[in-house]
C-alpha cells in the first residue's frame, strides 16, 4: 500500500468521537422520557378513590337486598325439606306395601306352584328307590 495511504489509515484510526456527543445524546434521551404531570397524579388519585368507593359499596351490599334473598332462600329450603320428607314417607310406605304383597304372592306361588311338583318328584324318587331295593 502507498506510504501516504498507510499514514492516513494510521491517523484515521486514532480519531475518536468527542465526549460532548455522548453528553448530548444523554441529554436528548432524558428529554425524550416523559415527565409525570399533575394531571397524571390527579387521574391516579381519582381512580383509586373510585375503586375504594366501589369496594365500600360491595361491602355494604349483603344486609340489603342480598340478605332478603337469603331469607327467602332459607324459607324455600324449609318448605322443600317438609315436602321431601312427606314424599319419602309415602315412597317408603309404597315400597313396604309392595314388599308385603310380593311376600304374600311369593308364598302362594311357592305353595301352589313349586311345592306340589317337588313333593311329587320326591315321592317318585322314594318309590323308585324302594322298588329297587326290593328287587
Amino acid at each position: 500500500m502507498h506510504e501516504d495511504l498507510q499514514r492516513l489509515t494510521r491517523e484515521l484510526r486514532k480519531e475518536t468521537c468527542p465526549q460532548r456527543v455522548l453528553e448530548e445524546v444523554a441529554r436528548r434521551i432524558s428529554a425524550q422520557s416523559p415527565q409525570p404531570s399533575r394531571l397524571r397524579y390527579a387521574l391516579a388519585g381519582a381512580l383509586a378513590g373510585l375503586i375504594l368507593l366501589c369496594g365500600l359499596a360491595l361491602w355494604q351490599w349483603p344486609p340489603g337486598r342480598d340478605g332478603h334473598e337469603r331469607l327467602q332462600q332459607a324459607a324455600g329450603s324449609k318448605i322443600d325439606n317438609a315436602q321431601i320428607a312427606e314424599q319419602a314417607e309415602g315412597a317408603l310406605g309404597c315400597i313396604g306395601r309392595v314388599l308385603l304383597d310380593a311376600g304374600s304372592q311369593s308364598e302362594k306361588v311357592i305353595l301352589q306352584g313349586a311345592v306340589p311338583p317337588l313333593r311329587d318328584s320326591l315321592e317318585t324318587a322314594k318309590n323308585k328307590i324302594v322298588n329297587h331295593i326290593t328287587l
Binding site: R13, E15, T16, C17, V25, R28
Partner: peptide, 24 residues
Amino acid sequence: HRDEIYRYARALLANQADAEDATQ
C-alpha cells in the same frame, strides 16, 4: 462503538460537525 460510528460518518460526510450530528 461511538468511535467507529464517528469515523465512518466523518469519512462519508467529510465534516467533523456533521459527523458528530450523525453519531448522535
